[in-house]
Design a protein around this nucleic acid. Sequence first.
DNA 1: ACCGTCAAACTGGCAC
DNA 2: GTGCCAGTTTGACGGT
Length: 225
Amino acid sequence: MGSTSPSGLELTMAVPGLSSSSGSEGFVGCGAGNGNGNAMRDLDMNQPASGGEEEEFPMGIVEEDEEERGAGAGGPHRPKKLRLSKEQSRLLEESFRLNHTLTPKQKEALAVKLKLRPRQVEVWFQNRRARTKLKQTELECEYLKRCFGSLTEENRRLQREVEELRAMRVAPPTVLSPHTRQPLPASALTMCPRCERVTAATATAARTPRPAANPYHPRRPSAAF
DNA sequence: ACCGTCAAACTGGCAC
DNA sequence: GTGCCAGTTTGACGGT
């Protein structure tokens, strides 16, 4: 795609690390979407078969039945589809850059300037907004995918850590009795609820049934943590 | 000739 | 009533 996006989609996105400028050429090549096709097409598009110098807006208002067109929705034949000239596209892009929506006056003025119908200008802006939004959505999607990936990795890492901590808990620390200086049996140990240090269990605490350990919040195995 | 992509144009629904 | 949007249709065009 290169620096000059053929469709020149300008994107704004509240994604860290991505350009969020609403200015021109905000889009950094994401590769997705309009590929190279347009770049080529723009070179050839709307070129008269003769290849000679043509009017500035060759694809302007079609002469054919304007009335039919209005009523023609769903009619037997749609009018031939137009391809906007490079100059028309350029000017439309330019005004889109300034404003993503048009007032009726602006629309009318632009239509006159481009020799298009106001409806065409309106449709172009609608489609242009849609394309911009689509591009943004695609970028957000990519960003969220990356987030998902890193969070999955983080989750795996934390799970491993939990397993390691659980494994360490199997072998409780040796705590010496303050009285006898002899190692206390694991069954005599409890966790101090205030300082979360392993202490020698009192006789009453040892007899009091304790609630089952919460598997999601395993107690710390020792004061070392 | 066929297919995929892009964009012009249309349609119906919704918000104001 | 008007304008916008999401979804769709359709034609132009390039690539194979």
